Computed example of a mutant assay.
Amino acid sequence: MQAAGEHLLSQVTQSLLGICTGIDLEGIRSKLSEIISGYDIKRIETDQTHPDLQEKIDLYLSGKKLEGLSKVTLGGYKIHLRIFAEHMKKMVEDVTTADIRVYLGRYNNQKITTISTKLSVLKSFFGWLTAEDIIPRDPTARIKPPKKEKRLPKALSIEELEMLREACVNVRQRVLIEVLYATGCRLSEVHAINRSDIDYNTQSCRVIGKGNKEREVYFSFKALFHLKKYLFTRADSEPALIITERKPYRRLSQRGIQREIKIIAENAGLQKKVSPHTMRHTFATLTLNNGADLVAVQELLGHENPATTQIYASITAERKREQHKKHLVQ
């Protein structure tokens, strides 16, 4: 009999010896050996994931890919589920609600958003397996998401935006600031834009957002001016809108864009943390402060849920003060 089967047999008989007396261990061992011989048993090492769990993860990701989830979303799901599988040495059907609570409890010292994301991925995974009748029950069904911290998005003021513009040391930096701000795009969306995507007649381009959904975004006159200036300096054949500064020229990575924005913010002397997503927050906040329609801003940002856009509308304390001062009948 294979080594894994022998090891299992020894563990079972030793366990019985510890809890039972006056039983025929040799007879039990002989019968168990006969049963086990009909199975291909493999021991799961401590540094391995359970093959059943890994198989179900691969099946889930394939199913979600067919449903049209973006590569970015699928990549995030894959990372979270890999970490879960490394911790959970069980078959999928054997995973309990308590197991998941213990797993999530390991991240108590991290942000609520991190725990929420991990639970959301697990709910999607087990919910899909249950809906497909691959497992009989969903162990995450009774776990409620943690209450989210009500933190307001950190948008830049008009003065801080101007400070960023003035701090740019080359035309590529200026293009990044103007395009991120004018379009309100996510980092992944700006990263994926090609030169041929831009329609100069309508001052717009189409981007692929979350859920693989396409939408139209618009450039300002400033953004187009600096973009044309930047593209005029390029003699490469790279289709990407934003490229590296050195040969071989290639699309500037998302990490590269983040690094560039950080450098600009440091040059501007801004104390707050500035990222590409800060520019998206700034676009939403300043346009709403300037009287933009909430539904229009929702469409421009690519928000599926209006409540997400509503967050920006609720943070405009300065505008509320202005409206009170302007419209209150004395």
Rank of each mutant, 00 (worst) to 15 (best):
G5K: 09
E6S: 10
V12M: 14
Q14S: 15
L16R: 09
G18N: 14
C20S: 12
C20G: 03
G22C: 05
G22A: 05
D24M: 13
L25K: 12
S33P: 03
S33T: 08
S33I: 02
S33L: 12
D47C: 06
T49G: 05
P51M: 06
D52L: 05
K56P: 02
L61I: 13
S62Q: 13
G63K: 04
G63N: 10
E67P: 08
S70W: 03
K71S: 13
T73K: 04
G76I: 07
K78Y: 08
E86P: 00
M88E: 07
K90D: 01
V92A: 14
D94V: 00
T96C: 01
A98R: 05
R101Q: 10
Q110M: 07
K111G: 00
K111F: 00
K118H: 02
K118A: 01
S120I: 00
W128F: 14
W128M: 03
A131R: 14
E132D: 12
D133C: 02
D133K: 14
D133Q: 12
I135L: 05
P136F: 07
D138S: 07
P139Y: 04
P139H: 03
P139A: 04
T140W: 03
R142S: 11
I143L: 02
E149L: 05
E149H: 03
L152A: 05
K154D: 14
E160I: 05
L164C: 06
R165P: 01
V169E: 14
N170G: 12
V171C: 08
V171R: 07
E178D: 11
E178P: 08
V179D: 12
L180P: 10
R186C: 11
L187S: 05
L187K: 11
H191Q: 15
A192C: 08
A192P: 05
D197V: 12
T202N: 15
G209P: 13
K210H: 06
N212R: 08
K213R: 15
E214L: 11
R215M: 10
R215T: 11
E216V: 15
V217A: 10
V217K: 10
F225P: 01
F225N: 10
K229Q: 15
Y230L: 10
F232V: 09
T233Y: 06
E238R: 00
E245M: 14
R246C: 00
R246K: 15
K247P: 00
P248V: 00
R251L: 00
R251W: 01
Q254S: 13
E260Q: 15
L270G: 04
K272A: 06
K273E: 13
R280N: 05
T285P: 07
L286V: 05
N290R: 12
A292D: 02
D293Q: 03
V295M: 10
V295F: 14
E304Q: 06
T308Y: 00
I311R: 01
S314W: 09
S314E: 12
R319A: 09
H324I: 10
K326V: 06
